[in-house]
């Protein structure tokens, strides 16, 4: 994930790609975040104008969804599942130990900018819990040792 400030050409290119869809806003926001790592403020006005909605409405949508970020995050995002099936096999202790080890709270980023840790409610890996996801890669039956390996890979 890069965190460059997008140019207006880059924003317009993405808008042109998705604006014709029925209900284009979520696809646009996903495309922005995939390209820029977050939804840059510079994109707010062009999106609002392209879709003929107010910036307040746009802010309402961005802030409603857990996925969308208004600020840059770490180079990698580690999601740890907090849901019931993972709790049943020690997910809570794993999450707490991981956060303590990194000295972070949920949504925090390590000082070196390598990893942001976020909670997730279910990755559909409930029969091989506790589960985590490093960027797009899923990991099951995570214990402290496997978590350490993941964190090392991510450079935390």
């Amino acid at each position: 994930m890069n965190e460059t400030v997008p140019t207006s050409e880059e924003i317009d290119t993405l808008l042109a790609e998705y604006s014709h869809l029925e209900g284009p806003l979520l696809p646009i926001l996903h495309a922005m975040q995939d390209s820029f790592g977050h939804i840059p403020e510079a994109a707010h006005r062009p999106i609002a104008e392209a879709l003929n909605i107010s910036r307040a409405e746009l802010h309402g949508v961005i802030s409603f969804y857990h996925d969308f970020r208004e600020n840059p995050v770490g180079r990698h995002v580690l999601k740890i599942c907090r849901a019931e099936a993972c709790q049943a096999v020690g997910g809570t202790a794993l999450a707490e130990a991981t956060l303590a080890k990194l000295g972070l709270d949920w949504h925090g980023t390590t000082i070196n900018g390598a990893v942001t840790v976020e909670p997730v409610y279910c990755l559909g890996l409930c029969a091989c819990a506790p589960a985590a996801m490093l960027d797009d890669r899923v990991v099951g039956r995570v214990d402290n040792a496997r978590m350490d390996t993941l964190l090392a890979e991510a450079g935390a």
């Binding site: 849901a83 019931e84 099936a85 993972c86 409610y121 279910c122 559909g124 890996l125 409930c126 029969a127």
Partner: peptide, 11 residues
Amino acid sequence: DEGDSGTFADR
């Protein structure tokens, strides 16, 4: 949008 913990049939 299979968000329920303990479900993965859709996936």
